[in-house]
Design a protein around this nucleic acid. Structure first.
Lengths: 194, 194
DNA sequence: CCTCTACCCTAACGAGCGTTAGGGTACCCC
DNA sequence: GGGGTACCCTAACGCTCGTTAGGGTAGAGG
């Protein structure tokens, strides 16, 4: 049942993603809800609350998506599934994902600290997949783990800028995965040219 | 000679990067300049002007960096140098780069359109490197060009979030380049395990 | 019928916003 | 020494901001 408060959260996510947190006024929110701006304070205590709740919703969604990756699958497969999960969340909850990636930094005080910790934890979980991959011998032993992880995380974190709902995110994730796996070098080495 | 107007642009870039465009007030700018807020209007006509100029400065810096990549070098090398150039700009002009990547969207009207066009052109120049790489046979003919380009662009565009001035950006770029080139697959295929 | 819950209203608050007007000082160059 | 340039000030403008106070309506559950 979509309570009124919940609807407000949706509108907040949408407007924060579209115009930015500081670019969105309580008046904008009220207009989107078809209500006088004072009325919003029946549901929240402050504008900052809205940002906090949307950001938390994002953190939960991304962590939950990672939870769905089976722990007993081979590392390479887990990386593939993690990419799929991430992109799926971005596409299905684009507004929330945008706040999670871009607008969280307007959080203040302990809330900001708490969010940063959750965000770091998420990236750490991602990083662990690559570490395991190398430890278990599925990735080359001389792999630059840091660069590989950062490359994958960059693709994940940048996705909100171009992904749109309705895209085939599984296929997109697999395409990223394929390039990351086998690279792009040609079968002929440059030295055979001149 | 650092004119006063120029100093204002630097402070604007710094504060826009730190607190966001809408999170930065004219008062903040004035304080950073050690001046009353009304005095700033001797140098600019509006706050929006500042955003526009900083964003343009960013576009110029990135395009200029790409210009420095020799056209007669082999495609793979050009990709490597393009990554180097990009990361160097990010590290050396972190504030400007941040505005170029993140804050530009608060531009309005024709300025916004003009900026978007410049940004698209920059990404297109990047994309062309990969296309040529495949056409000239340096990249695998079955390469997923779109995924590869997007991967590289994601790394480039995300860099402002973690890169800090003073880093060895050439080495970082080369590490990205190496992973992109040869991938991360292990020398032993997963099927040899059980 | 009474109470509780959920929801909304009007009206105002003090603060901060971007911007403007009008005036002033110090220095350089002819 | 007069004009120009670069820079800054005070004081206010109209507006919007987030937030609060106090009151009101409709429906559900006992």
């Amino acid at each position: 049942m979509p309570t009124r408060r919940n609807e407000l959260l949706r509108q907040a996510a949408r407007l924060f993603a579209e115009k930015g947190y500081h670019g969105t006024s309580i008046g904008d929110l009220a207009e989107a809800m078809g209500v006088q701006k004072g009325s919003l304070y029946a549901h929240i205590e402050s504008k900052a609350d809205l940002l906090w709740e949307v950001a938390r919703e994002g953190a939960e969604a991304f962590h939950a998506a990672l939870d769905a990756v089976p722990e007993d699958a081979p590392p390479l497969e887990r990386i593939r599934l993690a990419l799929r999960s991430h992109l799926r969340v971005v596409a299905e909850q684009l507004d929330v994902a945008t706040v999670f990636v871009r607008e969280w930094r307007y959080l203040e005080g302990e809330r900001r600290d708490a969010f940063v910790a959750e965000r770091r934890r998420y990236e750490e979980r991602f990083r662990a997949l690559f570490r395991e991959g190398r430890e278990l011998g599925e990735l080359r032993t001389d792999l630059d783990e840091g660069a590989a992880t950062l490359l994958a995380l960059s693709a994940a974190n940048w996705a909100y800028t171009w992904l749109r709902g309705g895209a085939d995110t599984d296929q997109l994730a697999d395409r990223f995965h394929a390039v990351l796996l086998d690279g792009m070098r040609g079968y002929v080495t440059p030295s055979s040219f001149r």
